[in-house]
């Protein structure tokens, strides 16, 4: 299969500069330094002492840090994908080629998210080192990585849709971070609110409302903690058709694909009045 031309071009531009390898190296250095330093200290103070709980702590901290990082970086990478071409006045000539809008969107999506995936994958060896100390299973580790991929795809698509919707990169970026914040924090706040409101005071614990349960299944930090074997804030509840990770992946993958298709549709010429065209 031929490589998507847009992807090839963006890769050329992105990886030509010194910046990309520098950022990856720095990131690995910091995260790796933290982990190794931590392990070193543990060994120094109690050599040969096996404490699975502690390495588990490190694992959870590392995963959380990466999730937060991902939420900060991914929308920024894609929220200019289309609007920046508009601003730089390169979009028109791209659209008159034989490239399909969906191909353009896909190429940009992959090239933008590739960087994030690269960062995450680069930390895999670190996880392996922690894995030696026990406290969690390889299955959980793979689960977390799959979770990261779904989440990167989601946040990337959110940024892409914003950049297709807004003419300028500024508003697009603000909107993308807004949506990501709503997903990261808003879902669980809303779920908690509904839970509290529906709770009847009394000795018998009331069942968790389905909406709260759904919202908790759609909250990335909660889902990740559950993959890591921690409890859920509103209790595990019963499975709604699918287990929590199934709901998370299915829902967000669907949403992401819809957002990307919609972004591509925004690139097609439309009849409706002035503002909607990409006149620059």
């Amino acid at each position: 299969m031929k490589l998507n031309p847009v992807l090839l071009r963006e890769m050329r531009q992105r990886f030509r500069t010194f910046r990309t390898p520098l950022i990856v190296s720095l990131y690995l250095l910091v995260v790796g330094g933290l982990c190794l330093g931590y392990i070193y200290l543990r060994w120094r103070h109690m050599p040969g002492f096996y404490q699975p709980g502690r390495s588990r702590e490190l694992f959870i901290t590392l995963s959380m840090v990466q999730l937060i990082l991902l939420a900060f970086v991914t929308p920024g990478l894609t929220s200019g994908a289309i609007s920046a071409e508009r601003e730089k006045q390169t979009l028109n000539v791209l659209l008159v080629t034989r490239l399909k809008p969906l191909g353009i969107v896909a190429g940009k999506m992959v090239s933008s998210c590739a960087f994030m995936v690269l960062l995450i994958v680069a930390t895999l060896p670190l996880y392996n080192v922690i894995l030696l100390y026990g406290g969690f299973s390889p299955g959980q580790m793979l689960g977390v990585f799959a979770f990261y991929l779904v989440t990167i795809f989601l946040f990337g698509s959110v940024g892409m849709a914003c950049s297709a919707f807004f003419q300028r990169t500024g508003p697009s970026t603000v909107a993308a971070y807004g949506v990501v914040f709503a997903v990261m924090v808003g879902t669980i706040l809303l779920g908690g609110f509904i839970y509290e409101v529906s709770r009847v005071p009394g000795p018998v614990p009331a069942p968790v409302p389905v909406i709260s349960q759904l919202l908790q299944d759609l909250n990335p930090p909660v889902v990740m903690m559950r993959i890591l074997g921690e409890g859920a804030p509103f209790g595990p509840g019963r499975d709604l058709v699918m287990p929590y990770w199934g709901i998370y992946s299915a829902f967000y993958l669907l949403v992401s694909v819809l957002l990307l298709v919609w972004s591509a549709a925004r690139l097609k010429p439309r009849r409706a009045g002035g503002r909607t065209t990409w006149r620059q």
Partner: peptide, 26 residues
């Protein structure tokens, strides 16, 4: 088509630029 205003991509060489459009026309 050559629009009245247009930009070019940063960090791309002239032949890469044309090569990109050649690939965009398959």
């Amino acid at each position: 088509y050559m629009p009245d205003f247009f930009g070019v991509y940063d960090g791309l060489r002239v032949w890469e630029y044309l090569d990109f459009f050649a690939s965009a026309y398959y």
